[in-house]
Design a protein around this nucleic acid. Structure first.
Lengths: 114, 114
DNA sequence: CCAAACCATGGACAGTGGTCTATTGTTTTT
DNA sequence: AAAAACAATAGACCACTGTCCATGGTTTGG
């Protein structure tokens, strides 16, 4: 598919998709047209973008996402890939703990406001 | 206490504390010395800063934190304050869901890397 | 007393994560 | 055919979240 469709289906803007591509989060190929240089994106990209949406919301940086994508791509080196992914899971668990703390703090605030 | 002590005890740098103060997250008073203009921070600030550390890690922005601080300060308008805090709790719960999704995604990745 | 450490203020700078604009060319719709 | 929509590329621009630096003054340890 072309970037417009990908944008529409993923909910990211064209600009953001290009930004992500520049940063190695997704890849595209130049189409086979003789007359234009429109890029082609596989369905794969859409799957990744859907993950990115949640992962960004969950607090992962673009650099984090790149390392995950790379871990997937270079799964020839499985141990390294596993290590990266395990590390990210660990980070997310810590973040979840922090969210729990913050929620408790706010619930306290709330009961003080009673 | 003075900013250096606050920095040391909170783990934030002096610069960050000043940045937070500029952004309304904490307040200080000018000390009573005749010869200097050193600012004084109450223990209260330390409590807030400890919360901020976790809350930032949990993905709350400085603007978010300011609105919570303000909700606390202007608790004369309790309903408004409650609404702000409830809204933040809601956001954090959504963020926690996103983290859960991301973790599941990564665990899938992991089992693919098996 | 003097150096080291501290403080205030203000502004410059940096990294992240985009967004917007300009330019130029292509495709699709009417 | 003309207008509208789409695309590529490059670079400017933005808000956010700090960090660093310069300057000038103050306090403290030895």
């Amino acid at each position: 598919m072309r970037i417009g469709e990908l944008a529409q289906r993923s909910g990211f803007s064209r600009d953001t998709i290009r930004f992500y591509e520049q940063n190695g989060l997704i890849t595209s190929t130049v189409g086979d047209s003789e007359t234009n240089s429109y890029r082609k994106y596989k369905d794969d990209c859409l799957v990744w973008l859907e993950f990115f949406a949640g992962a960004r919301e969950a607090g992962m940086s673009v650099a984090d996402l790149r390392s995950i994508v790379e871990a997937n791509a270079e799964s020839c080196d499985r141990e390294a890939a596993r290590a990266v992914v395990l590390g990210k899971i660990e980070e997310l668990n810590e973040r979840a703990d922090q969210i729990g703390n913050a929620i408790r703090f706010l619930e306290n605030t709330l009961s003080r406001l009673g």
